[in-house]
């Protein structure tokens, strides 16, 4: 799955955790499920810590309460689609409050 062709761009987006409960189980499950659908490397970074968005427990362990800033990076054939999908999850606050 790892696509490392130099020509491929890495898409980088800044994301903010806006839902009240932060990245608890359900949002993280949604991220992981979404991430698994695309042919792309998808990572999330918080304060220099980078995890694979597919690794649910790693994302949980990033410890992201409301107000956390994250950097999303996607790379690979479906990098754009992956970025759009995950960004919109954050934008819709994971259908939470």
């Amino acid at each position: 799955m790892a696509i490392t062709e130099p020509k491929l761009w890495t898409i980088e987006r800044e994301l903010w955790v806006e839902n009240r409960l932060g990245l608890h189980a359900r949002p993280v499950a949604k991220i992981a499920t979404a991430a698994q659908q695309f042919d792309a490397d998808i990572t999330l970074e918080k304060d220099g810590l980078v995890v694979n968005a597919r690794d649910l427990l790693d994302v949980l362990a990033l410890d992201c309460p409301q107000g956390t800033r994250l950097v999303l990076r996607t790379r690979g054939p479906q990098a754009r689609e992956a970025a759009t999908s995950i960004t919109s999850l954050f934008a819709r606050k994971f259908e939470e409050t």
Binding site: G22, L23, H24, A25, A61, D63, P65
Partner: peptide, 18 residues
């Protein structure tokens, strides 16, 4: 052990699911 270091109470509590 990883989860014990998590600051947020709700997130830390997900160890129950694990």
């Amino acid at each position: 052990e990883v989860f014990q270091r998590i600051g947020d109470k709700h997130i830390r509590g997900r160890i129950q699911d694990v």
